[in-house]
């Protein structure tokens, strides 16, 4: 017994390094390379103002991608994040315009996000439908509800007080960035330090084994979809705060960027694998690439091309280095 305790007590620093996985280091190197390339090509890319710009531009995608990461780790996928955000946005916005107090309107938006996630989760976990199909169906459904609710028109004229909440800054950083950073920290704690995180990894890694080991499968999956829905609603609040209006078509194709960020960050669509740090880095990689290309006046077609190539490159590097770390 004595040698065991010494063994574990002697390595707290090694333990800390151990937590920063090889895969995350790879994503970080990717980000550094991309930053270096744009730094060399684009004058003023490293200007403080521009760097401060990249983060808020990445924050909405990062917020969605964190929820997506948890769902992907559980062995699922959530294609409905964009329409969930839209539905949450138009409902919050119309309440705000009608003069409902901010906290209540924001809470209603969050409740919509949770409800959308709950429906996805129940259909996946209890009814046993495939996540891809379920969320493909709710993708259309939630979008349709947002369009029907607004008659297809944007909700305009959000109160300035509401907009100020999400456009403010703290310690020189935009509040949206701080909010997403806090969310990332919570997600990291969930994944690394709570039973729920272990359950997510186990359910996605081997559902049958997790069941035999007593893991509450259905609850775990539903919670993942509900978090994803909640974070989509949070992204929606940040966006309508920034824009001052809520369009029922907002969030189109958000799910693809979120999946891309998670995958670049090392999440496996087979489930059982994924990293909060990696996903954040993945979102910043996508964000800085878009920022750099825009500054270079590259046409949006080529930006799309670059996004595609980055995803494929990340997956190829993954494949080549697989089985280590």
């Amino acid at each position: 017994m004595t040698d065991i305790t010494q063994h574990t007590a002697a390595r707290p620093s090694a333990d800390f390094l151990h937590r920063f996985s090889v895969r995350d280091a790879g994503t970080l190197i990717g980000l550094v390379v991309i930053l270096a390339v744009f730094g060399a090509l684009v004058p003023g890319f490293f200007a403080e103002r521009n760097l401060i710009n990249i983060l808020p531009q990445s924050s909405i995608n990062a917020c969605l991608a964190l929820g997506m990461t948890l769902v992907i780790i559980s062995g699922g996928i959530d294609l409905s994040v964009g329409p969930t955000a839209a539905l949450s946005a138009v409902i919050s916005a119309s309440m705000l315009v009608a003069g409902v107090p901010f906290p209540l309107a924001i809470a209603a938006g969050f409740a919509i996000g949770l409800a959308c996630g709950l429906l996805n989760g129940v259909l996946v976990a209890y009814v046993g439908l495939q996540p891809f199909i379920v969320t493909l169906g709710t993708l259309s459904t939630y979008r349709a509800l947002a369009l029907i609710y607004t008659g297809g028109n944007p909700v305009l004229g959000l109160p300035a007080g509401f907009r100020a909440i999400f456009n403010g800054s703290l310690f020189g950083l935009p509040l949206a960035v701080i909010i997403v950073a806090v969310v990332a920290l919570i997600a990291w704690i969930i994944l690394k330090k709570t039973p729920f995180g272990e359950y997510l990894l186990a359910v996605g890694g081997n559902e049958e084994a997790a069941y035999i080991a007593g893991v509450p499968i259905a609850r775990t999956k539903i919670a993942a979809y509900m978090i994803s829905g909640l974070l989509a609603a949070l992204a929606a609040q940040i966006l309508i705060g920034r824009l001052g209006a809520a369009e029922p078509i907002l969030g189109n194709l958000w799910e693809l960027d979120a999946i891309a960020a998670a995958a670049i960050g090392g999440a496996s669509l087979m489930g059982g694998k994924g990293s909060v740090v990696g996903t954040i880095l993945g979102a910043v990689i996508l964000g800085s690439m878009r920022n750099g290309l825009t500054l270079m006046n590259v046409q949006s077609f080529y930006q799309l091309l670059a996004t595609g190539l980055i995803i494929l490159a990340a997956m190829l590097i993954d494949r080549v280095t697989r089985g280590r770390g």
């Binding site: 272990e198 990894l201 084994a209």
Partner: peptide, 12 residues
Amino acid sequence: REGIVPLRSISS
């Protein structure tokens, strides 16, 4: 199939 979660550590 029913015992191990392959990617996770022995401790987990």
